[in-house]
Structures are given as structure tokens and as C-alpha cells.
Design a protein around this nucleic acid. Structure first.
Lengths: 315, 315
DNA sequence: CAACCAATATAACATCAAGTTATGAAGATT
DNA sequence: AATCTTCATAACTTGATGTTATATTGGTTG
């Protein structure tokens, strides 16, 4: 026997409210509608579900047992509505975000932590990659957003790119590095110290080479390469090595690691760091919410950077 | 947002079977029907529930969460069907049975015990009363069946009466009572011993008076009255008192109590012990089942009584 | 890359259930 | 007994669900 789950819900409402009229009111339906539905349910089951001639209406044993199941159905229904509304408000769901490793580790992961403090039911799935592969994944719908440095003219038409910071790389070193005391740095100063290189296929690697070329350093030596941010910073703080990092990363990591940036003009890439996402506002409210959060966090970061620069000038 | 619980069930079926076609098959519906239902659900929610272009079809996070609720609904639905079918088979439910106190205690309670060994999920609610009040309760539908002695011509038209034993009362006494050794009993023999009387409003009390009149005893004395069966038997076995009891009760209780029946013809009431129930086969399969069980048990009891009589004659 | 095959979506229609209002019947209450 | 509340019924409209037939789509394969 197949029973319509809605009928069970209605039965539960009748039982709980002690009457057809009250049950109908609780359900927001008319009394005749509820009455007929109950009659139909009883006729299908082939048994009365309420004791005859009692007020308030009292269910039979069977009626009570089925009403209990009706409560289960209603519970599932309420849970469903809740799930949907939380999802649509971006308070629940899954955000798949990817970006260049250094950025993800150095800046985004902290932003994710703050985001999750705010909306704990959103799960964030982080992965790493560079523009090309991430664009592919965005088109695949296997990724919700990518945080990558990108040249304006390289932005794919079918995707939406929201810039959040200008590309700004700096030479990073440990706090108290010998070079931090010098006002003017020559290529010779630079060539004295070993370099940490990012992975060769990363944009940052290209930035490093260009920076060194700009400075005029030709005989540089690379002592360490291929590590992720944690390794880079460990090596950086444990030695006199230098490396190229986005300024936002150095600025962010200063709070926890003893690194700083040399005041050395190395030429900025013509890229913007930005959030790349499907242009169709595809239905992932949590991702939308996270994107807005990331943008806002970067605005705050930019502001703090400006503030910090002013302070330095004043000193 | 109100979601149709049936849609959730369908969603669960699609998710579990990895496709619309398979889901439809599992549900016993056509593929287009399921397809449209899913489309409708998605449009109401305002979000896709499955990742686009995947085979086997993979649900989104939201789709999976809602499918989980769908499984809850289905579970409740299956439980309901089970509850109903068990109820209709008489394997579950409530049976409200009443009867004259002596009978209920002496015979029916043992039958109930055997019944429950067979169908443990049926609850039996026992109460006591005499024909008049029980007939009232049967009409009220506050009772499923009454086990009472009744004259054939006193059976109400609107109720169904199924005779199960002829009325047969005996004089009961303790085992080894002085009177058990006598072949022929005179009124004087009887008057020597005190009597235990049932409650004055009981049929058995009228039987007692009639029996004593039949015997010709006029000067009898009543030493105890008003007790239920347990008290009666305690007094009986602890003294030389006599009382009138249905033979079926004495026969049944012999197994556990040291009582026996005097071979004294006391004249039988023109009543039949029987099961009285609503003539409408009102929808309580468990009660029907119990009634059939009681009838069968009494048949077996009657058979054992006949067997026992034969044995006595042979000795 | 074209062609094929399986799965899904759409169309068109029939049927049934659920909703409505209006009203009758029945029970409880005084 | 009269009244008032509650439940059942009637008549009708609307929307959902089911069907079969067919078009699209997407993945697979030579």
C-alpha cells in the first residue's frame, strides 16, 4: 500500500491540533479540504483513524502511529526548506576556490578563516593552479572561482574578472637582513645573496627573472626552489636568501613571520590580481557571498597597506 | 518555501539510482514524469540539483542534502505501510476486552497470555463488568469484545454473540474437602459449611441462590463475599467453605490451585458463555484475531473437559 | 570528426487529486 | 429543547501527475 506522505502530514496536524478545523487552520487550508483528505486516507487504509464521536478528536492507536510518521515527514520537509533557504542566502554550501599557491597560502587562507568564522556552514574547498588550468576548470563548472593575477587583455570573454589588487611584487628577505640597512642597492649587492625561486611554471618565476633583469643582476644564484610558501618562508627566515613575492603576501605574513620587503624598485607586472568566475551568475549563493567577502577583505588589505606606507613616510 | 515531500522522494530515487531513467524505473513511473517533476522541483527551488552534463548524474551539494531528506520521507512512508499492514493482519493494535471478573481472572487471562506469546505486538486492555454495562460500552465503541454469560433471548439485536460454552456451574471446594468423600449429598451436608458469595450484582450470585434453592438448602450462611477470584480461591483452599463457580474456571484453576468440584447437581443456568462484539465488523483486525483465538481456546478447553470426564468415568 | 546510441527534455493530452465556497448534518453544551 | 460548534458533502476550478510519442543533447566510437 502506497500512502501519500502529504496525507500523513495532514494527519499529524489533525492529531496535534485536536480537530479538523484546528488542523486545517494550522495547515493554512480550508476545513473541507482537510476533511476530505482524511476521509480519503481512511478509505484507502480501510480503517478509521479517529475514535468516533470524541471531542477533542482522539486518534486510534493506528491513527497515532501514522501521525507519528507524519511528524517525520513534516520534519524532513521543514529541514528541506531550511536547507534551501540557508543555501540561497549563501549560509550553507560548498565553495570551490583555487589560485596560485603563494597567494592561496599567504593571503586567501587567512581570508577563508575569517569567512568561516562568519558563516561556519559553508565548506571551502581550496586547490592550487595557474590561470590556464583554472580557466578550464571554471568552464567545466568544477570550480567556483579562481584568484589569479591576470593581464587585462588576457581575460577570457566568457568569464567574469573582478580586479582586487594591482600586481606589485617586492624582494622579500628575513627581518634584519644585511640589505635592509642600505639605502641604495646595486646589482652587486643583490648578487651577493642566494635566491629562492618559485616553481618554474609559475607567473612568479617569470616575475623573478624580469625583476632581476630590471635590476641589472646577471649572476644570481638560486639556492632553493619549488617549495610552497611555508617552506619559502622557513628558508627565508633561516638564511640570508632573497626572493620575489607579491607585496600583499609579505604584508600579510609579516604579522606572523619575521620577513620584510626591501625598498627596491623591481618593476611591476602589468597584471591585476583578481577574482575570476563564471560570468553566468551560476547558482551558488555561497560562492557569491565568498567572492564578495574576498573582494571586501582585499579592499581592507589595500587600505591597511596605504596606511602603512603613510606611517613609514612619516617616520 | 513549501516543498512537496513526494518530490523529495523522487529526488532521492534519482540520486540513488544515478539517473532519471533508472530512478523512474525504481519508482515504477515513466521517465518523462520523473524528468518533469525534477524540473519543477528545481524551478521552485531556483537552483540546479544536479551537476550539468555528468553521467552517471551527480547531485550538487544541495541536491544531496535534499535527497537525504527524501530518504527520510521514504522511510516514514515505508514505516507507515508496514504499520498499516501489520495492523490489518491483526499483528498489531489494541484489543479492549472485558467480562465477568471471575471468568476474566480464571480463564481469559490465561488465554491472553497464550495469545500474546503468539502476537506480541498486540496490546490487550482488560476490564471487568457485567453484561448490561458491557453492552453499553460495545455500543460506545469503547470496548471491542465482552465475554459474558448471556441468555439466548437476551442477546441484543445490534450486537453479535458467539457462544463458546454452555453455562455450567459447580460447587467448588478445596481439594480433600470432607464433602468430596460422600457419594450423596443432602441439604444438611451442605448447610454444615460456610459459603463464599460472589458480589451481589453478579450473575454468579443469582446462580448461587438458585443452586442452593435447587438443592433444598435453606439455612446456609455466607462467610465471605465480594472478593475477586484470587481471594475466593485463597479462602476456599484455606477453609472448608464452598462456593459456586463456572466449571471452566474450576477446571482451569485446578492446574495451579488445590480446588475441586463437588459432584452435585445444582441445575444449570439457561445461559451460554459467549463472546459479544459489535455486529459491524468494525475495523480492528487485532480484535477479530483475538476473538477467533478465544473461541479456539475455548473449543480446546471444552475438548479437554470432555476428555477429563471420560477418564473419571473409566476410573 | 562524423555518426551513432543512450539519456534526458519537451509536447500533447487524459485523469485525478486538492483547493475553493456554500451548505447540510451531527454532537456537544447550555 | 435549542443553540452553537464542528464535521461532512456538493459542485466546481485548477493544477499536478501520469501516459505515449518525439525531439535534443551529450558521450562514445569507428
Amino acid at each position: 500500500m502506497k500512502i501519500d506522505p502529504r496525507h500523513l502530514e495532514i494527519l499529524a496536524a489533525i492529531v496535534e491540533n485536536g480537530g479538523l478545523t484546528e488542523g486545517a487552520e494550522a495547515l493554512g487550508k480550508s476545513q473541507p479540504s482537510v476533511s476530505r483528505t482524511l476521509a480519503q486516507l481512511e478509505s484507502r487504509i480501510g480503517t478509521a483513524l479517529f475514535k468516533p464521536g470524541r471531542r477533542p478528536l482522539q486518534p486510534t492507536e493506528l491513527g497515532e502511529a501514522l501521525a507519528e510518521q507524519g511528524r517525520m515527514v513534516r520534519k524532513a520537509n521543514l529541514a528541506s526548506s531550511d536547507i534551501v533557504s540557508r543555501f540561497k542566502a549563501g549560509h550553507a554550501g560548498l565553495v570551490r576556490v583555487a589560485g596560485t599557491p603563494i597567494f592561496m597560502d599567504g593571503v586567501i587562507s587567512g581570508i577563508i578563516a575569517r569567512f568561516q568564522a562568519q558563516v561556519p556552514d559553508v565548506r571551502v574547498e581550496q586547490s592550487y593552479g595557474y590561470a590556464e588550468t583554472l580557466i578550464e576548470k571554471l568552464r567545466n563548472e568544477t570550480l567556483d572561482m579562481a584568484i589569479v593575477p591576470l593581464r587585462r587583455d588576457k581575460v577570457p570573454r566568457d568569464l567574469l574578472f573582478q580586479p582586487i589588487l594591482p600586481g606589485l611584487n617586492v624582494v622579500a628577505c628575513r627581518e634584519g637582513h644585511p640589505l635592509t640597512r642600505r639605502k641604495l642597492l646595486t646589482p652587486q649587492d643583490i648578487e651577493e645573496f642566494p635566491w629562492i625561486a618559485p616553481p618554474v611554471d609559475s607567473p612568479l618565476y617569470r616575475d623573478l627573472k624580469r625583476a632581476l633583469a630590471n635590476i641589472g643582476a646577471e649572476n644570481y644564484r638560486i639556492s632553493f626552489s619549488g617549495g610552497s610558501l611555508a617552506s619559502v618562508i622557513n628558508v627565508l627566515t633561516g638564511s640570508d636568501s632573497l626572493t620575489v613575492l607579491p607585496y600583499s603576501v609579505v604584508f600579510t605574513m609579516k604579522a606572523q613571520s619575521a620577513i620584510e620587503a626591501l625598498s627596491l624598485e623591481i618593476g611591476h607586472p602589468d597584471r591585476m590580481l583578481g577574482v575570476l568566475a563564471s560570468s553566468t551568475p551560476h547558482d551558488n549563493p555561497a560562492a557569491q557571498r565568498f567572492r564578495a567577502f574576498v573582494v571586501a577583505q582585499f579592499e581592507a588589505l589595500a587600505h591597511r597597506i596605504v596606511q602603512h606606507q603613510k606611517d613609514r613616510i612619516w617616520r
